[in-house]
Amino acid sequence: MKALRLTAWGEAPASVEIERPVPHGAEVLVRVEAAGLCRSDLHVIDAPPGALPYRLPFTLGHEIAGQVTALGPDADGVAAGDRVVVYGPWGCGSCARCAAGSGNYCDRRDTLAWHGAGLGRDGGMAEYLLVPSARQLVPIGDLPADQAAPLSDAGLTSYHAVSGLRPALGEGTTAVVIGVGGLGHLAVQILRATTESRVLAVDVREDALALADRSGAHFSTLMRPDTARALRARSGDVGADAVLDFVGTAQTLELAVGVLRPGGELAVVGSGGGSLTVAKPGVLPAGFRLSLPFWGTRHELAGVVTLARSGALRVETECLPLSAAPEAIDRLRRGAARGRTVLVPN
């Protein structure tokens, strides 16, 4: 079968022919219908030798939807023909958090040579994917594959970040989304569908603001020197109850802190290299609370799928054949991708 594999650190991934895997034990073989392309893939591709614990080679792709085609003799919970989305953060599989469906916070994460599908283990940028257990699969019914695949990271990570803030987002509150890309536009929709908060959006691109508006933002604005003041004005001059930063640079973190009200909550999702200095007293709002959400739980993935199937959540996608992966990677690197890029096996 064809697969896009990382074969050497510092080099572009290669399209190669490898053997189609055969499921053993509790494993499940999934025929891939769609695989999302994520900035996390760029972090892996660009990583210098030794920066990640992963052993080469492996197939890229951690946002995956497809159809079950074969099962190992000990597999249960799914049947051949079932359409599924793959829960990507594969942990050790045996700690309490993995057993509870929270592989994203596996207790043994720092000792593993992988972080999930396409992250040290073979992923979904291939014609078939071998999944270690049916526990990593969530049914999608008739949801289109290009809509389902991005839910497993872009949708799930956004949903998980919003879930941690939801108690603070009742009637009359304000939430700010910084960065309206593959994750941010879904966060806007999730906030609208699951909270009563007024949703404000910020980006540096006009087309991203148009995407925010299509996603349901009550107000969107370009990032400028006076953006914090403009956002505070939209919150009744008290500041935002919560900010979700999907960029994570020094500039966006400064904006986030500048717009938060006392007791406000900040979820930093983006990995843009920025940092905050925690000091008391200091510039952070009194009562400030910070979270660093990573991916999400299997139960939350089922919730994301339910939202998408209800029509409350729609991913803005750009579909390309798997053979066009180099072009897709280049477009993502240049910031030219719109919404979420999805690769479809040829």
Rank of each mutant, 00 (worst) to 15 (best):
A3C: 10
R5M: 14
T7H: 11
G10R: 04
I18R: 14
P21F: 02
V28I: 09
P49D: 10
A51V: 05
L52E: 11
Y54K: 09
P57W: 06
E63F: 03
A65Q: 01
T69L: 10
T69K: 05
T69M: 12
L71M: 11
V86A: 10
G88Q: 14
G88F: 12
P89C: 13
G91C: 05
G91S: 09
R97N: 13
N104Q: 13
N104K: 04
N104W: 04
C106E: 07
D107L: 15
D107R: 14
H115F: 12
A117Q: 14
G118M: 11
G118S: 12
G118W: 00
L119C: 12
A126E: 03
Y128T: 13
L130I: 07
S133W: 08
V138M: 10
I140M: 03
P144K: 12
Q147A: 13
A149R: 00
A149F: 00
L156R: 10
E171Q: 08
G172L: 10
G172Q: 11
T173R: 15
T174E: 04
G179F: 08
G181K: 08
G181F: 03
H185V: 11
Q189D: 06
R198F: 04
R198P: 06
V199D: 08
L200D: 08
A208I: 05
D213W: 03
T221M: 12
P225N: 05
R234S: 11
S235V: 09
V243Q: 05
E254L: 07
V259Y: 09
L260D: 04
G264F: 09
V269R: 03
S271I: 15
G272Q: 10
S275L: 01
T277V: 14
A279N: 03
K280A: 12
P281F: 03
V283Q: 13
P285G: 06
P285V: 08
L290S: 00
S291M: 08
P293H: 12
F294W: 14
T297K: 07
E300P: 10
V305R: 01
T306E: 15
A312F: 01
L313Q: 02
V315C: 13
T317V: 15
E318N: 03
E318K: 02
P321Y: 03
S323W: 00
S323V: 00
A325E: 03
P326A: 09
A328C: 03
I329N: 05
D330I: 00
R331A: 15
R331M: 08
G335T: 14
V342M: 00
